[in-house]
Design a protein around this nucleic acid. Structure first.
Lengths: 315, 315
DNA sequence: AGCTTCGATTAAGTTTTACTTGTGTGAACC
DNA sequence: GGTTCACACAAGTAAAACTTAATCGAAGCT
């Protein structure tokens, strides 16, 4: 009759059984025999004072109490598991899991991965590209790279990279572009993942900044900046590219910036990790490395006329 | 080295130890000897591969991993405990825990408790008066009575009582009140717990509804309606009383309503319980009973001029 | 300083829990 | 109408979890 918790193994057995809707399946998951699991459930029911499963002929079915008990137990064990895994990951000095947007992952992190591997052969990087923002605490992630305005409260945050928007295309296509107004007659590529910026950094804003007082023509839309860049490299048109992401293809000459006007924004890339994690050796090594990598990119705007996006709208 | 959960008893021991910051204290809570607890922690640390506590001379201190592990484990066990208690309460047909605001509890529920006990001697009522709204799912509560506008999504909800606002005072004090304007020369009692109503049901609104075009004088404020009513019964002044709460003292003649103008509002009392709970025998018995009690109060507005609060502001 | 106390630890022994193996049962499937 | 599937039950066993009792190290007291 105790209101205290029943034997926790019994609870866990119940949770697994409810998930599998089968004692045998749950037993398999927990590496015990079905008999043991049956006994655990029985023990739970003794403690509770009522059955949690209706035993049907070939199947089981949750009773009302059982149904009531499922979500909480599931939730509880998930929380415990997450906490445990977090602690294990904290101690694991050989892996770093970093999350970032798909574009940053594919155009910035992935190409530099080999460099990191060489500098730190004992640390294995793992990427977890996701559109939704992952929670540093819960989602099995050590480090996050995010683009936006900040500030980042309650976490360690390090300024990484500003970003600049300027038209980019293949060298061949660039030959047909003499003045910004020429852009109006070319297929323009749109990437919608920076649509959240305010003030906006889109074709309309750039054209205005470049002195072209015309609405940009419609064009193909991509929901990820890396896809838009890929399209531009395939000579599909001109993309309003982000310098931070296009650094490599620019240096390799696969993309060129035909005009020297670039939009800047207060949004920027930064790298985040839980407070305190920044001093852990392998995390610190990664932070140092990524900061160093960012430095190598920062000096590319020397011969550009940079126009803050905020000035475009007001004047 | 497994990323699976460690022995759950060890985790629970850790959680308790972290809470008490003492092995001995935790051992006491779990009804085991300190030696057993020490062993459990050791087992946990073996599974984790690192110590979770620094053993100081007379005290213990969490290591970094330990600190990381605490919130999740605490949270997990709290969730499990809540789920378990919820299941136990579901099966318990002998107790009903009902939460309501302090005023409703003291002026409405408590006086009727004896009646319920007589009608259902096998069911024991428990009250959990709280200002903050309790969560039906989490807070060890079966039934909630709330005052407001609704709607109530995701729970069973039953209309209970409308409420009307009219000046109330002792019979003696009432003799000095001939017209509503006389109120301006008496101490007025304010109860702030209905300040959230929109349109408002306060002295200003009532006076306007009664045709008195003057600002109400300042007076004593109470943060709970029952305290304001008590003050009025102690002849401290005139309260803008809520009929639902003042029903008993009105019937007993300890309070009277000198004027027959009352403000009505769309806010109302309703009784809530989790979906599905409404059919459980003892809960159903309570819902029936409280509905019946409410019916006995509903016919008291016969000789009043009821003015919806919404009309006061617009006209 | 030396004695005491407090809180954690350790070792040996015991109890309790959890599990396995093996068998049994009833309904569904073919 | 047997076979199979999925759970239940019983007896025995392995592995926890716990207790008792002794130990240790440092802080606090006189």
């Amino acid at each position: 009759m105790s209101d205290n918790l029943p034997p926790l193994t019994a609870l866990r057995a119940f949770e697994a059984a409810a998930r599998h809707m089968s004692f045998a399946g749950a037993a398999g998951e927990l590496n015990v025999t079905p008999a043991a699991l049956s006994f655990q459930i029985k023990s739970l029911e003794d403690h509770l004072g009522a059955p949690v499963f209706k035993r049907l002929n070939r199947a089981i079915e949750l009773t009302e109490v059982g149904q009531l008990l499922v979500p909480g137990t599931r939730d509880g064990f998930e929380t415990l598991t997450a906490a445990w895994r977090g602690a294990r990951r904290f101690l694991d000095q050989t892996h770093i899991t970093v999350t970032a947007g798909p574009a940053f992952t594919s155009k910035w992190l992935a190409p530099r991965m080999y460099d990191f591997a060489q500098a730190h052969p004992d640390i294995e990087l793992r990427f977890s590209a996701a559109l939704r923002m992952m929670d540093l605490g819960r989602d099995d992630v050590d480090v996050a790279v995010r683009f936006g305005y900040g500030p980042d409260d309650g976490v360690y945050s390090q300024w990484l990279l500003a970003d600049y928007f300027t038209p980019l295309c293949t060298p061949d296509l660039a030959k047909t572009l003499t003045t910004p107004a020429d852009l109006l007659h070319h297929p323009l590529l749109y990437s919608d993942d920076t649509a959240f910026l305010d003030p906006p950094c889109d074709w309309q804003a750039w054209l205005q900044a470049a002195g072209v007082d015309a609405a940009p023509p419609t064009g193909t839309h991509f929901n990820q900046a890396d896809h838009a860049l890929d399209a531009a490299m395939a000579e599909a048109g001109v993309v309003l590219g982000r310098m931070a992401l296009a650094h490599k293809p620019l240096r390799e000459g696969r993309l060129v910036a035909p005009f020297k006007t670039a939009l800047s924004t207060d949004a920027h890339f930064r790298v985040l990790c839980p407070l305190g994690s920044d001093t852990r050796p392998h995390i610190a090594a990664f932070l140092d490395w990524i900061d160093d990598q960012a430095h190598q990119v920062r000096d590319t705007m020397a011969d550009f006329t940079v126009v803050p996006a905020a000035q475009v709208v007001t004047g």
